[in-house]
Every structure is written in C-alpha cells, then in structure tokens.
Amino acid sequence: MLNFLEEWSFFGGSILLILIGLYGVITRKNMIKILISLALMDTGVNLMLVALGYVKAANAPILNSVVQTNTAAFVDPIPQALVLTSIVIGTAVLGLGLALVIKIYDKFSTLDISKIRGLKW
C-alpha cells in the first residue's frame, strides 16, 4: 500500500490535475473559470515534470555546507529549470487572458461565454 502510494501518488495526482483542468476548460462557461482550469493544467504538468526528475533519497541540486561535493546523489536539475520557465510563461498567459476577459466584460457585461457572440465553442 505504502509502496503503491509512493510510486503512483505524484504521477497519478499530476495527471489527474491536468485532466481536471482539461475537463474544466471544455465544460465551464465562465471565462474566469476557464482560465482557472488552464492554471490547474499548468500546475499539473509542472508537477509532472519535476516528479519525472525525482531520485529517491537524493539531495536537492544545491551544493552547500552539508552536501559538499558533486559525488553525492542529486535529483535532476534540468526539469526544475524547465519548470521555472514554464511557471513564468503560464503566469504571462493568464495575465493576458484576464486582461482580455476584463475588456470582453466591458462590452457584454457578462462572463458567460454562451452569451457572447463569437465565443461559442
């Protein structure tokens, strides 16, 4: 049981988070909720990437007074670097999306995409 949880909780959790986000993007009609779902998908995939680089019982990839040499076991630093980039990109996209939402609201006085011409999908 514990072994199963250890092996699957991170992978399963992050994939489920992506799928929940995907479901939200497709079904929600409120524009802010669509963007929230997009944020959930982002978080899920970031978690996935970092989890793929995890090494059991290894150290964080930082040399310090405790972990002094490169011969110690480290987790993979590359996915972490990629995720740093991806988090910032995700925020940029969300910010732009919210600005668009504000303008669309100004025009239609609603956040409901089913009431907005040109946004029905």
Partner: peptide, 27 residues
C-alpha cells in the same frame, strides 16, 4: 478580443500537452 481569447485558451491547452511530451521525451 474574443478571437484573441479563443486563441489564447486553445494555445494554452496546446502548450500544456507539448510540455508533457517534452517531459516524457526527456525522461
């Protein structure tokens, strides 16, 4: 604005899947 929002949402979904693909490939 609506056209842009539509593109942004679909582009956001696409980038998530692409990132997942990158993760699998790197792993």
């Amino acid at each position: 604005y609506e056209a842009s929002f539509k593109y942004l949402v679909i582009g956001g979904i696409g980038s998530v899947f692409m990132l997942l693909g990158i993760g699998f490939t790197y792993s």
